[in-house]
Amino acid sequence: MKLKYEVLPDEKIECCREICNELMAFQKSKSYITPELFDNMNFETRLIPSINNAVHNYTVVVKDDDQIVGYVYSNISPKEAYSNEFATFFDLSSVNRDHVGCLSQFYIKEEYRQYGIGSKLFHMSMDWIKQFDDVEDYFIYVSNGNTNALEFYKRKGFTVSHDILDGFITVLRSKREIGCNH
């Protein structure tokens, strides 16, 4: 296994089409609450609109030789982007700033799990998100049935905030740690 981590510019996002669609199929396979909602979720309906609605995007792919075996997509977006025809993901009044950070998509092929890839991608993503001083609220959305992901994020310091869509998605939240002013 020869792993390489590569930050992708937005204009190269097309190479994530297959792995993004694999994530959607994986989420559907785990889902026990309205799994049919995943039928219309794919690269075109999830990743592309998210990139277009964000102010800043950060995508990292993991390659074994030239094959993409995992990725993480994070963004900085206006908080209003999370209230749309699909759902309202959090109480907008609970966010003081104009923008939020979101670890939006995260997937590693099964045979590559348990090698620390997830932790490395998570830390790369959070380091990127935390560089934006005007963002103090960080969100992750976990689909129902994906207990391993939920526990992973909780171990990384995120706490369950609430469920939306009758439990279809669990919202996890973390806040920027405010340090002392010097």
Results as ranks from 00 to 15, higher is better:
138 Y>V: 11
91 D>Y: 06
179 G>D: 06
108 I>D: 10
78 P>R: 02
111 E>N: 14
24 M>E: 13
36 E>I: 04
74 S>I: 01
69 V>L: 10
106 F>Q: 04
95 V>F: 07
35 P>I: 03
108 I>E: 03
103 L>V: 08
158 F>Y: 14
173 R>H: 13
2 K>T: 13
20 C>H: 01
144 N>A: 11
176 R>G: 07
168 F>R: 03
112 Y>N: 06
82 Y>G: 03
163 D>R: 04
160 V>R: 09
32 Y>L: 06
54 A>W: 06
177 E>Y: 09
37 L>N: 14
71 Y>R: 00
124 M>A: 07
82 Y>E: 05
148 N>P: 03
160 V>A: 10
165 L>R: 12
36 E>A: 08
168 F>C: 08
149 A>H: 04
14 E>I: 08
128 W>K: 08
10 D>Y: 05
126 M>R: 10
144 N>S: 10
84 N>I: 01
4 K>C: 10
40 N>P: 00
151 E>L: 15
5 Y>A: 02
59 T>K: 03
113 R>Y: 12
21 N>L: 02
90 F>Q: 01
49 P>Q: 05
91 D>E: 14
120 K>R: 14
10 D>K: 14
97 R>Q: 12
46 R>A: 11
90 F>E: 01
89 F>M: 03
122 F>C: 05
107 Y>M: 04
38 F>K: 01
89 F>R: 00
45 T>L: 02
164 I>M: 10
39 D>M: 00
116 G>P: 06
93 S>A: 11
147 T>H: 10
110 E>H: 03
71 Y>A: 05
75 N>T: 11
94 S>T: 15
4 K>I: 10
1 M>Y: 04
65 D>Y: 11
11 E>A: 11
150 L>A: 08
48 I>W: 04
139 F>N: 01
93 S>E: 15
26 F>A: 10
61 V>I: 15
85 E>A: 11
98 D>V: 05
66 D>W: 00
181 N>V: 10
156 K>M: 15
58 Y>W: 09
172 L>H: 04
11 E>G: 07
52 N>K: 14
120 K>L: 15
13 I>Q: 00
170 T>M: 05
177 E>H: 14
121 L>V: 04
8 L>P: 09
107 Y>S: 08
140 I>S: 00
113 R>Q: 15
17 R>T: 08
115 Y>R: 10
74 S>Y: 01
125 S>Q: 01
5 Y>E: 04
102 C>V: 15
30 K>A: 09
155 R>D: 09
108 I>Y: 10
91 D>A: 11
54 A>Y: 05
